[in-house]
Nucleic acid binder design. Sequence first.
DNA 1: AATCATTCATTCACTAAATCAATGAAAGGG
DNA 2: CCCTTTCATTGATTTAGTGAATGAATGATT
Lengths: 385, 385
Amino acid sequence: MRARNQREVFEEVHRRGPISRAEIAANLHLSPAAVTNISGDLIARGLLFEAREAETGGVGRKAILLEVDYGMARVAGVKVSSAAITCAITNLGAEVEETATRALTDTAPETVIEGIVSLLGEMDAMDVAALGVDLPGAVGDDGATVRHSPLLGWREVPVGQLIERRLGVPVTVENDVNALALAEAWFGFGRGHADFLTVTLGRGVGLGIVLGGEVYRGPKGGAGEFGHVVLDPEGPETAHAGRGTLEAFLSDDALLRSARRAGVPAEDAASPEALTALALAGDPRASDVYARAGEVLGRALSILVNIFAPTLIVLSGEGMRASDLLMPSARRVLESAAFGDLGRQVDLVVDTWGDDAWARGAAGLAASRYLLDAASRTGGEPQQV
Amino acid sequence: MRARNQREVFEEVHRRGPISRAEIAANLHLSPAAVTNISGDLIARGLLFEAREAETGGVGRKAILLEVDYGMARVAGVKVSSAAITCAITNLGAEVEETATRALTDTAPETVIEGIVSLLGEMDAMDVAALGVDLPGAVGDDGATVRHSPLLGWREVPVGQLIERRLGVPVTVENDVNALALAEAWFGFGRGHADFLTVTLGRGVGLGIVLGGEVYRGPKGGAGEFGHVVLDPEGPETAHAGRGTLEAFLSDDALLRSARRAGVPAEDAASPEALTALALAGDPRASDVYARAGEVLGRALSILVNIFAPTLIVLSGEGMRASDLLMPSARRVLESAAFGDLGRQVDLVVDTWGDDAWARGAAGLAASRYLLDAASRTGGEPQQV
DNA sequence: AATCATTCATTCACTAAATCAATGAAAGGG
DNA sequence: CCCTTTCATTGATTTAGTGAATGAATGATT
């Protein structure tokens, strides 16, 4: 009971930025006395602090604004892909302080765990309070076990426990797209939105569904396999997903293949980066590849818009390096294919994409866990020192 | 606080059928004492009753099972379509006691309201405690105002208040698909499922999304416009929805048109009922129309399955009269197009379709509202007689 | 048949945690 | 300089839970 209200007060301060006790009371339907009591507890435990006074509310005493102390601890996030691990160390507000990358020789669990441990050892990571691990694949409800990851070749790997044993800090494991969505909800564009969607483009096509501030995973997990949606049964073939799926149109490999078919020289169509650069330089064949991909993306987004009627879609992933090439046609198709005004009412935001975004997502995952745990803990019992 | 736990105990009894106090306590993480207290209150107010003793649980005292008293009141539900109004009177368990229908000369709000009032007047409706109204279109959050209904030609009609003034009972207005989904959640196949989907076929194609036991409407409403999803930009044209949309493939009109194009004589393709009868009688052209429609339905369902990874999809609507013709090909396509095992893990249930199902949905809407209100009301204050 | 262990339900004292009403603190306006 | 307004806090009160003990009903055990 107390724990619940503590958490709600804390989340309200996190969401609504600097905020007065009076406003918290009004928003949460609590009495001012209760908010004084609860926030006092959270301040004593270092989670919140009295930031400054409000500018003005007209007449009457100025409010004392409360803020979350995002600097009270540091956390680390690791993104594991098939080729490398990337690590970011951030404060509890997911603001990056340091990043590092290391290539992987293979993706065996031992190699990956060893890589994470030694990479963190080279960083200023002695005092991190929690670690988040992102990876492509299905993760169990426990936030620790990898059920199945085709890209890494893992099946039923309790990677959370294994790393915890090595590092001695709490570890949370999550699917990369879901972690990114969660980080967007807590610290990114999704802040203030109870419901929104995150679509990622890159090696594959991902969908993170955030409903009521939480990532939706479906009754038994597995929700968000958007890349496997079939857009055209006669469409292109692909290795991982089926024929004519979104991934068969929009994944890195699909774009490169389509570029080669359009006559782009093989050396330019060797990597997504090269192809994007060529198109941005004005090559008509390359930019046409992206324009047509944008149309497919627009159709894909229109499906989501018709189903969810969202107010926000965050677009992210390596593929969004080419957002300038993709989005014009995507927007056009979306607005024409979505029902009524839905296509115009949705805010399409492209997350500025850096290599460390996935790792930042993992750190955000760890940070949100850490904060929620701390806020839910009842401060009553005597804490041993 | 008390109100919340009262409601939770009540909902638990509703969901889990006859259930002992001990089990409620375990499921809701409440003490047995609290459950005794709360359930005693709910029994005193006539919402629950001690049904019978449990069969056996091995050793120990037999549990006293609690049940919801669905007979404590009666409610009415009205479905408004462009051609007629249908009314059902049910108990609080959405069990139909009486139905009646009346054709509409026009769809002006006054005509419809007058029709509802006089139709209820001809039925045994003196004691109904609440009324639910279903209609095609967008309904405001207040559950009373129709924002926009192209089929009825309404815009911003406060139909809830208008009927309430005439009848003196609380009226809840809701979009027809959402009301059906809610009724399935409370009284139908969705009982016991926190998350599931309802897909309706008929004049259009509808989608009701139930998440956490509640109908999802999106941040600003408007979610579930599944019929406007574009399956094939080169697909058939249609009047209401766009080119190649699900409605353009699967609505009644679309099926009739496609039948005529396949060579079915005009008199057989005059109504959906006739076409279905012809196909069920073995006509190859007619049944081919449904087989191909089933493939489209399967693709549509696979989109939902890939996004939501649901465990249950309830199929309903007039169009489901032809379920025997549609479902074999729909299942086949779904299983091949959905990611991994998702297509096999989802339970596809066809709701046995009677003309009164929509009206029953409306009554279920009213019943759920009535029960929730009654269960949330704190029994403490003295009730004036 | 009597006793015992077990499970379900209830009672009552206790307590956690909210609210309520009163009060103090800080601001601007007349 | 006082009054009004808004924010924050305090202490008494109330609500609604828990915990431990008790009673009730049942099958198993001796």
